[in-house]
């Protein structure tokens, strides 16, 4: 029972890291990304493959996941942040689909549909590994909170908000809107990579279907639920959306991982997410 609780809290921390980092991308930079879940997946795969196939230590694996995901995110952003919001959303959606296809089919690198198993966790001596992971996730979530709060309040954060609201105005004052957005997306991707590495540790096993579009939508829903303007809100969104299915599991709906209830909850999330997004757009115009 206590191990199960550790697991749920660790998972909430991991998703809080993911939603705080998407909060920078969506809430500050105004970039409606549907790729955050698969960026998390990329971080999970970098960590999982390096530690299981290349003999890399967990600590180095985490750093590699953060840096590698940031670089891939920057590359995606570099070719897409100049697009309008709808085109950007579709491009990131396509990226999500594409990466899942690559993960599934480039089997010599990714082990394809079999996935990556026996992914190691950070460990110190012979401390309880689940407790260690929980403490690591808590600590990293707290650090992420401090870092992204500071970013949101910084001059960089203010420029991102201004660029989302009126990019031509920012450019006319000398602001490099394209590079501001690419940087924001790369930093957000680094957060997704960190969450991904921790997710791989927590799950122990990863496979492509975990990182299909539903994961991106779930993280988006966490950000929107918490209110896109607040980093703390993103944490709350993660806690609620990880907590509810687990509570439902206790209420004896044993359907959380694949069953129809989860599908229904997910469908509702999509509707609410899109509704809130459209509503907040029209109310600002």
């Amino acid at each position: 029972m206590i191990v199960y609780l550790y697991e749920v809290v660790a998972l909430a921390c991991i998703f809080a890291i993911a939603s705080m980092s998407l909060n920078l991308v969506l809430g500050r930079a105004g970039l409606f990304s549907l790729a955050h879940g698969v960026l998390l997946g990329i971080g999970a795969y970098i960590y999982g493959l390096l530690t299981t196939q290349a003999g890399v230590s967990p600590a180095v694996g985490v750093v590699a996941a953060v840096v590698g995901t940031a670089v891939l995110g920057a590359a995606l952003a570099a070719v897409s942040v100049h697009l309008d919001e709808e085109q950007f959303a579709v491009t990131t959606l396509a990226f999500n689909l594409l990466v899942v296809i690559v993960l599934t089919n480039w089997a010599s690198l990714t082990r394809g549909a079999y996935g990556v198993a026996q992914i190691p966790r950070l460990s110190i001596g012979d401390a309880d590994p689940q407790l260690m992971l929980l403490l690591a996730a808590l600590l990293l979530a707290a650090l992420t909170f401090v870092a992204f709060r500071a970013l949101a309040k910084s001059g960089f954060g203010q420029l991102l908000v201004a660029s989302a609201s009126d990019p031509d105005m920012v450019r006319a004052l000398g602001g490099p809107v394209w590079s501001l957005r690419v940087r924001a997306f790369a930093i957000g991707s680094a957060g997704a990579g960190l969450a991904g590495a921790l997710f791989a540790m927590q799950a122990g096993y990863i496979a492509p279907p975990l990182f299909e579009l539903h994961l991106s939508v779930l993280i988006l829903a966490m950000v929107i639920l918490g209110g896109t303007r607040s980093v703390g809100g993103a944490v709350l969104g993660a806690v609620v959306l990880i907590g509810i299915p687990e509570a439902l599991r206790f209420a004896a709906f044993n359907a959380v991982s694949a069953g129809p209830l989860r599908q229904i909850v997910f469908g509702l999330l999509i509707i609410v997410t899109i509704y809130v997004r459209l509503h907040s757009k029209t109310s600002r115009a």
Binding site: G155, Q158, L159, A162, V170, L173, G174, G175
Partner: peptide, 10 residues
């Protein structure tokens, strides 16, 4: 914050 955008942007 709006006024600061002038200095930040450049």
């Amino acid at each position: 914050e709006n006024v600061a955008i002038g200095a930040l942007a450049r």
